[in-house]
Design a protein around this nucleic acid. Sequence first.
DNA 1: AGCGATGATTTTAC
DNA 2: GTAAAATCATCGCT
Length: 381
Amino acid sequence: MDDQTRMMTGLTGLGGLTQGDVGDPDSVRKQQSLGQPQQDIGDILQQIMAITDESLDEAQARCWPEESPAHWGGSDDPTEGGRAGGGMAGGGLPLNFQHRKHALNCHRMKPALFSVLCEIKEKTVLSIRGVQEEDPPDPQIMRLDNMLLAEGVSGPEKGGGSAAAAAAAAAAGGSPTDSSIEHSDYRAKLAQIRQIYHSELEKYEQACSEFTNHVMNLLREQSRTRPISPKEIERMVAIIHRKFSSIQMQLKQSTCEAVMILRSRFLDARRKRRNFNKQATEVLNEYFYSHLSNPYPSEEAKEELAKKCGITVSQVSNWFGNKRIRYKKNIGKFQEEANLYAVKTAVDAANVSAQASQANSPATPNSGGYPAPCYTPDGRL
DNA sequence: AGCGATGATTTTAC
DNA sequence: GTAAAATCATCGCT
């Protein structure tokens, strides 16, 4: 409801009114009763322009000092708008109001006036905010969309995202049993998030379309009593959609956050780290200390070690990476361990050759690379 | 709880 | 891309 409704109501049978008179029910009635001839359209428009400067409240106060705004035909409620044509007669609306409304709807100048007024509206009020009309796809919402798609929250049901995540986690390591348990848990939680997301999205879409329909019905209804161009309706719908899309973005944002938290809880291997078992550590250490001069196992050697230890190749790589740096950083600390494994290796070798004189030597000659532990090839510590 | 050990990840350098 | 180095997060012992 706005000035336009009141304008049109006040315009019926306008003739010879001064600007001060416009909108004054008494003066309108006066003019109507006098039955003055139709005034020139230019004058009417001029008066309309003057009226638009008034605020709704003051105009209404002048027009209907004793009534509440809800009695207006142009109310926000479309159902009321529907009744206003006559159903309300005797139900609260004053008869002169009904009379004027009827007069307006039947007036031969109505279509022409409406079209002119629509044009004026287009050129004034709407053009002000019509500048940034066309909305380019929001990069933020696109980012969120992509992420939700990648995580398997939005998009097709088959859950490709969670499968991919599971595969990624499997590649990261962990025993197969452990990870499969973790994954089913993860998938269940992800499915939960997915479900909530979709039901919320549905609610949102429903609310959006309901509200859009509501507003469109309202505007269509009102377009019978005030000038509303289709373009204006279109614009209103666009505004509504923009408002709702900001809500949608919030939903997507919080869904993304939930997925991120879930991921970090379930798929960050650091959080469920298990120390390798003793036997695995032994195998790795044996290799490390027996190849101290060049502790860089080849791909094949890594695979072999991984198989022996029941861990993945990348875990073997991690282990060697950690071991090299930590050994180098503090050789003293690892001295004991180094000697232990050197003896171990030597004993194994001795079992084959029974050569006691070289028993304490590392299996591989130490030719640069990493500093040897504090022992000599001849067995002195 | 505190703390060192340790596996994983990230950053940096080549 | 790989390895070193730095860092993180958890484990496991006291």
